[in-house]
Amino acid sequence: MSLGSYCFRKSLWVFHFGGASCNNCDIEILDCLTSRYDIERFGMQLVGTIRHADVLLVSGSINRKCRARLLKVYNQAPKPILVVAFGACGCTGGIFAEGNVFGGPVDTIIPVDAYIPGCPPKPEAILAGIVKLLNK
């Protein structure tokens, strides 16, 4: 068993970094935590600081102002950490990629392990994405 898969055997704690996003992805992430989808039954929960996290969830397009901050958050993370680019904006920049303040898709700034596309992805897609990530 490699170190990576050993670390991610049990409850994954997620830190959510909201870039310059339109909120929809963030709301769907919170929706996952509430009663209908209840992602906490799999031991996943949002944590307050990156230092406690196993997963860094990045949603929203990254503008020039938050590019450096995303890198800073990633450098503070305990390794190994799984990085998930969330939503169309997280994956590619989406509709805002042509903007004059666009700072580049997430994968040009930090290494990304999984992409969950959609605008916004449905909560079911989030669950499916996490399952695929763990079986990788």
Binding site: A20, S21, N63, K65, N100, V101, F102
Partner: peptide, 11 residues
């Protein structure tokens, strides 16, 4: 303010 600037009016 200004952290969420995406340049929407320009787009």
């Amino acid at each position: 303010t200004g952290y969420n600037h995406r340049g929407i009016e320009k787009i």
